[in-house]
């Protein structure tokens, strides 16, 4: 059992074909889970949904304008669209006095629809942006041509050939981690009790906008790997599962990182080999399987998480 596994992992093909998507998937899931923790506790999980949807028209618009599929261009377009949408959501919330869910629903549906219409236009013009890629990501295609085995990890020339999304997501994760650490107290206090936070001078509104911005950045960074739909699971499932297993915020955040990485690794393996084990041929979408696994982890936490319904149970016992 163990020997074939080691043989598989040490093969050049594994390093070339499987390792980069696994690492990229884990980085994407972890980058999204970090802001996701705070979205979840602020009851703003839908914000991740909204932001990942609205990135689509930005990416397509950038493509139509420049005719380029370069990562930087798509990032710029998506970032611009996400910022526009984030501003629109805040504006609809404040000016229209709509509850946040409704404000997001209105903005993200409209912008996503616009993105789909624009995707059709790319089909009409000579150059084409793959709809499937845009919606579900393309994790499997992110391979490391220059790798000849694990030794390539120490070879600068081979490292330069790593897929660009890997570096982008590594930078995204580092930025998310730094921001979370830097504003840890402020995020904690303003998420728990915004009124108290504002009175003692925590910049509550700026933090809220910053969290929205970080969410947008994570969604855009993960776009190449997992597309604009399945990324939502990465924002919410690992933090939600971690919430059910942890009693303090720091433990919840660390656990969410673990669950995010776990669902990426297990999801990728199951997508690649699962159908074979079941006697079927080929493989299924890696991003899809990662989302499914993170959902399964959440389901498991719902049933067996040590911190689930703690309040209800304890209150019942103490009240009597």
């Amino acid at each position: 059992m163990i020997d074939p596994l080691i043989a598989e992992i040490s093969s050049p093909e594994f390093v070339q074909l499987s390792l980069p998507p696994m690492v990229i998937g884990a980085l994407a899931a972890m980058s999204c889970a970090l802001p996701g923790n705070f979205l979840l506790l602020r009851r703003q999980s839908m914000l991740a949904d909204a932001v990942s949807h609205v990135a689509l028209p930005g990416i397509v618009a950038a493509f139509l304008l420049t005719g380029s599929m370069a990562g930087g261009t798509m990032m710029l377009g998506a970032g611009a669209a996400a910022l526009v949408a984030a501003g629109m959501i805040e504006a609809v919330r404040r000016v229209g006095r709509l509850e946040p869910g409704a404000a997001m629903g209105v903005v993200f549906t409209a912008m996503f629809a616009l993105g789909v219409l624009m995707l059709e236009r790319t089909g009409a013009s000579g150059v084409h942006l793959d709809v499937e890629h845009a919606l579900y990501g393309n994790l499997e295609s992110l391979i490391w041509f220059d790798a000849t085995g694990w030794s390539s990890a120490a070879d600068p020339r081979a490292l330069a050939g790593l897929p660009a999304p890997l570096w982008r997501l590594a930078a995204a994760l580092a930025a998310m981690a730094a921001l979370t650490r830097l504003f840890w107290k402020e995020l904690t206090i303003s998420t728990f009790d915004p009124g108290h936070a504002q009175v003692i001078g925590v910049p509550v509104r700026a933090l809220s906008l910053g969290l929205t911005g970080a969410t947008a950045a994570a969604a855009v960074a993960a776009f190449d790997a997992v597309g604009s739909i399945l990324v939502i699971a990465m924002f919410i499932c690992p933090p939600a599962a971690a919430r059910l297993c942890a009693n303090t915020l720091s433990r919840q955040v660390w656990l969410s990182m673990l669950f995010a990485a776990l669902s990426a690794l297990v999801g990728y393996v199951l997508a690649g080999y699962g159908p074979l084990w079941l006697g079927a041929r080929g493989s299924v979408s890696a991003a899809g399987m990662i989302a499914v696994v993170s959902g399964l982890i959440l389901a498991l936490a719902c049933v067996a998480g040590p911190a689930r319904r703690r309040a209800g149970g304890a209150l019942g016992a103490e009240g009597r």
Partner: peptide, 24 residues
């Protein structure tokens, strides 16, 4: 200024211990 809002204004399911809230 110290402000103590209405108890019901926050989510007491927030993952924190008693000491964590006092530390705030």
């Amino acid at each position: 200024i110290a402000y103590v809002p209405q108890r019901a204004s926050v989510d007491w399911e927030f993952p924190a211990r008693v000491i964590d809230v006092a530390l705030m």
